[in-house]
Deep mutational scan, measured.
Amino acid sequence: VCQVIAMYDYAANNEDELSFSKGQLINVMNKDDPDWWQGEINGVTGLFPSNYVKM
């Protein structure tokens, strides 16, 4: 598990995705897919595009 910072706002398009705002910290749970990582914010988990965040 690592933390990343959102570089942009992201609004989920599907129920399994994670919405976040620019500057939010996201706990990364899974990086099996290079493009879509699984993350957690405040107890909510979902997929998000890895190119929207930085380490």
Results as ranks from 00 to 15, higher is better:
residue 47 L to N: 08
residue 20 F to I: 05
residue 10 Y to T: 01
residue 19 S to G: 10
residue 23 G to E: 07
residue 36 W to C: 13
residue 42 N to A: 13
residue 25 L to T: 09
residue 41 I to M: 12
residue 49 P to M: 08
residue 47 L to M: 06
residue 18 L to Y: 00
residue 31 K to D: 10
residue 12 A to P: 05
residue 46 G to K: 07
residue 1 V to I: 15
residue 35 D to S: 11
residue 54 K to D: 10
residue 44 V to E: 07
residue 19 S to Q: 04
residue 36 W to T: 14
residue 29 M to T: 14
residue 7 M to P: 01
residue 27 N to L: 09
residue 42 N to T: 13
residue 5 I to R: 05
residue 39 G to F: 01
residue 26 I to D: 01
residue 4 V to Q: 03
residue 22 K to Y: 04
residue 47 L to R: 13
residue 13 N to K: 15
residue 44 V to T: 10
residue 10 Y to W: 11
residue 25 L to V: 13
residue 51 N to P: 11
residue 5 I to N: 04
residue 28 V to P: 01
residue 54 K to P: 02
residue 20 F to N: 00
residue 32 D to K: 13
residue 26 I to C: 01
residue 38 Q to G: 10
residue 12 A to L: 02
residue 18 L to G: 01
residue 38 Q to D: 12
residue 24 Q to M: 10
residue 27 N to C: 10
residue 4 V to G: 11
residue 6 A to F: 00
residue 35 D to R: 12
residue 22 K to D: 04
residue 22 K to A: 12
residue 27 N to P: 03
residue 31 K to C: 15
residue 50 S to Q: 11
residue 16 D to R: 14
residue 39 G to Q: 00
residue 10 Y to C: 10
residue 46 G to F: 01
residue 15 E to R: 11
residue 17 E to K: 08
residue 45 T to D: 07
residue 20 F to R: 00
residue 9 D to L: 02
residue 37 W to P: 02
residue 31 K to I: 15
residue 9 D to F: 03
residue 14 N to H: 14
residue 29 M to L: 13
residue 23 G to I: 01
residue 51 N to Q: 08
residue 8 Y to E: 13
residue 39 G to Y: 01
residue 46 G to P: 00
residue 22 K to G: 07
residue 33 D to R: 13
residue 55 M to W: 03
residue 6 A to E: 01
residue 13 N to G: 15
residue 25 L to R: 08
residue 26 I to L: 09
residue 39 G to H: 01
residue 49 P to W: 03
residue 48 F to D: 01
residue 16 D to T: 06
residue 12 A to Y: 03
residue 6 A to M: 02
residue 43 G to E: 11
residue 47 L to F: 07
residue 49 P to G: 03
residue 20 F to A: 00
residue 21 S to R: 12
residue 42 N to F: 06
residue 13 N to V: 13
residue 2 C to W: 06
residue 23 G to Y: 10
residue 7 M to A: 08
residue 55 M to S: 14
residue 12 A to C: 07
residue 52 Y to V: 13
residue 50 S to H: 04
residue 54 K to Q: 10
residue 13 N to C: 10
residue 40 E to F: 05
residue 14 N to L: 11
residue 18 L to V: 07
residue 41 I to V: 10
residue 35 D to V: 11
residue 14 N to S: 14
residue 9 D to C: 04
residue 28 V to A: 03
residue 18 L to W: 01
residue 51 N to V: 09
residue 14 N to R: 14
residue 36 W to K: 15
residue 15 E to D: 09
residue 12 A to Q: 10
residue 33 D to C: 15
residue 16 D to P: 08
residue 20 F to W: 00
residue 31 K to Y: 07
residue 26 I to R: 00
residue 13 N to A: 12
residue 13 N to P: 06
residue 17 E to A: 04
residue 53 V to C: 10
residue 51 N to A: 08
residue 34 P to L: 08
residue 46 G to E: 00
residue 3 Q to R: 06
residue 17 E to G: 11
residue 1 V to E: 10
residue 2 C to T: 06
residue 54 K to R: 15
residue 32 D to A: 11
residue 3 Q to K: 14
residue 1 V to R: 04
residue 29 M to K: 08
residue 37 W to Q: 02
residue 42 N to E: 14
residue 47 L to K: 15
residue 33 D to V: 07
residue 28 V to K: 00
residue 12 A to D: 02
residue 48 F to T: 01
residue 4 V to H: 04
residue 33 D to K: 06
residue 3 Q to S: 14
residue 6 A to S: 09
residue 49 P to F: 03
residue 49 P to Q: 06
residue 7 M to Q: 10
residue 31 K to M: 11
residue 21 S to K: 14
residue 47 L to H: 09
residue 10 Y to N: 03
residue 2 C to G: 07
residue 53 V to Y: 02
residue 44 V to Q: 08
residue 25 L to Y: 07
residue 44 V to A: 13
residue 19 S to A: 10
residue 19 S to N: 10
residue 5 I to Q: 08
residue 52 Y to H: 14
residue 35 D to E: 14
residue 34 P to H: 04
residue 4 V to N: 02
residue 2 C to A: 07
residue 33 D to S: 11
residue 48 F to Y: 01
residue 17 E to N: 03
residue 9 D to K: 04
residue 40 E to D: 10
residue 37 W to D: 01
residue 20 F to K: 01
residue 13 N to L: 14
residue 43 G to F: 04
residue 29 M to R: 13
residue 34 P to Q: 15
residue 48 F to M: 07
residue 37 W to M: 03
residue 22 K to I: 09
residue 36 W to V: 10
residue 22 K to R: 06
residue 12 A to E: 04
residue 49 P to V: 01
residue 35 D to W: 05
residue 32 D to N: 14
residue 34 P to S: 13
residue 29 M to G: 09
residue 4 V to L: 03
residue 48 F to Q: 01
residue 40 E to I: 07
residue 31 K to F: 11
residue 19 S to F: 03
residue 3 Q to L: 06
residue 20 F to G: 00
residue 32 D to E: 15
residue 52 Y to A: 09
residue 30 N to I: 06
residue 4 V to R: 03
residue 25 L to K: 09
residue 33 D to Q: 08
residue 50 S to W: 03
residue 44 V to H: 15
residue 38 Q to C: 12
residue 24 Q to R: 06
residue 30 N to Q: 14
residue 29 M to D: 08
residue 45 T to Q: 12
residue 20 F to L: 08
residue 1 V to G: 05
residue 14 N to W: 04
residue 21 S to M: 10
residue 39 G to S: 00
residue 30 N to H: 13
residue 23 G to V: 01
residue 19 S to Y: 04
residue 10 Y to F: 08
residue 7 M to F: 05
residue 46 G to Y: 01
residue 52 Y to C: 11
residue 43 G to W: 03
residue 26 I to A: 00
residue 54 K to A: 06
residue 35 D to L: 12
residue 29 M to N: 04
residue 25 L to D: 15
residue 36 W to Q: 11
residue 32 D to M: 10
residue 40 E to T: 08
residue 40 E to Y: 04
residue 3 Q to P: 07
residue 30 N to G: 11
residue 17 E to M: 11
residue 39 G to T: 01
residue 55 M to G: 07
residue 38 Q to Y: 13
residue 16 D to A: 14
residue 11 A to T: 11
residue 45 T to M: 05
residue 52 Y to F: 15
residue 28 V to M: 05
residue 2 C to E: 03
residue 18 L to S: 01
residue 27 N to H: 07
residue 5 I to V: 13
residue 51 N to T: 11
residue 33 D to N: 11
residue 18 L to E: 01
residue 6 A to G: 05
residue 14 N to A: 11
residue 29 M to P: 02
residue 9 D to H: 12
residue 9 D to S: 09
residue 12 A to R: 13
residue 26 I to S: 00
